[in-house]
Write a protein that binds this DNA or RNA. Sequence first.
DNA 1: TAACATGATTCAAT
DNA 2: ATTGAATCATGTTA
Length: 350
Amino acid sequence: MDEQSRMLQTLAGVNLAGHSVQGGMALPPPHGHEGADGDGRKQDIGDILHQIMTITDQSLDEAQAKKHALNCHRMKPALFSVLCEIKEKTGLSIRGAQEEDPPDPQLMRLDNMLLAEGVSGPEKGGGSAAAAAAAAASGGSSDNSIEHSDYRAKLTQIRQIYHTELEKYEQACNEFTTHVMNLLREQSRTRPISPKEIERMVGIIHRKFSSIQMQLKQSTCEAVMILRSRFLDAMRKRRNFSKQATEILNEYFYSHLSNPYPSEEAKEELAKKCSITVSQVSNWFGNKRIRYKKNIGKFQEEANLYAAKTAVTAAHAVAAAVQNNQTNSPTTPNSGGFPASCYQSDGRIQ
DNA sequence: TAACATGATTCAAT
DNA sequence: ATTGAATCATGTTA
C-alpha cells in the first residue's frame, strides 16, 4: 500500500503542479476532446486525486459526501482503470504468478488408486482387485463369499461417504466462489478491482478447495487400504476346504493309492475342480500321504468309502457305455475298488 | 474347553 | 524342485 500511495502522490504532484507530462500519460484522454480542453482535464484529475488524498482529514459526514461525489464523478471509471493498472504492476498480483497448476503427482496417484479400488469409478464396480484376487485364491466356498460381500458392503459405504462429501465440497466451493465474486463486484464500485483480480481470487479459492478435496481423497484411500488389508488378513486365515473339494481330493487319492503322486497337470485339474491353488493341492497330498501312512487303520473306513464311491461311478460309466452299445470293458485301471490288501503292495506307501 | 482334525510352514534329504 | 517328516496354528466337535 505504501508504494501505491507514493505513486499516487507522484501522479497527483505532477499534475497538480500543472507540468505537462513528458513520457506519455498514464491516463488516456477521454474520447472526443483534444487540445484546448487538455489543461482543464488535468486540473480535473488533479482535483480528484487531491480530494482522495485529503479525504481522511475530513469529518465523517463531509467525507461521505465527498465520497459520494467522487463515486459519481465522470472520471471515476477511467481513474479506476488506471489504479487497477497500477495495482497490477505493483506486485500485488505477483502471487498469482504460480497460476499454472502442474498436475500434482500425488493427486494423480490418489485418483488412480480410488479408481482402481472402485471408489471413484463407475457405480457398482463391485470386485476390487483385492477382492477378486482373494476370491480366486481361496475359492468360492460359502463362508468366503460372506466375507466377500462384507467387504463389498463396506467398500460401498466408503464410496457413498466419499461421493456425498465430494459433492458437499463442490457445492460449498461454488457457493463460496459466487459469494466472493458478488462481494468483489460490489466492492469494485468503491475500490479499484480488475476482472483479472477477481479471476485470480476465484483461482485461489478453487485451489484451496481442491486441497481440501485432496485431504478427503487421502483419507478415503487410507480407509480403503485399511479395509483391504483387514480383508486380506481374514482371507489369509486358515480355512478348511469345502466338503466338495475334500471329496474330490480324497477320490483322487484313494483311486490312485498305489501311486498317490498327481502329476503337475493332474494337480492343476484338481486345483481347478476344487477352486484351490496348485500348491494347496500339493500340500493336501503331502499331508494326506504322510498321515495315511502313519495310521492306515484309521483311514481304512474312508478308503473303503471312496473305493465304493468310485466303484459306483465306474458302474454308472459301464451302464452308460452299455447303453451306448459300447461293449468294451471299462478301461479305467483304478476304478475297480481297492481291497485293503492292495494298499500294502506298493513300496511307496508303507 | 480339551481333544482332535486339518491346512500351512519349515527343513533336511534326494 | 519335490517329498517326507515334524511342527505350528487354527478350525471343529464332543
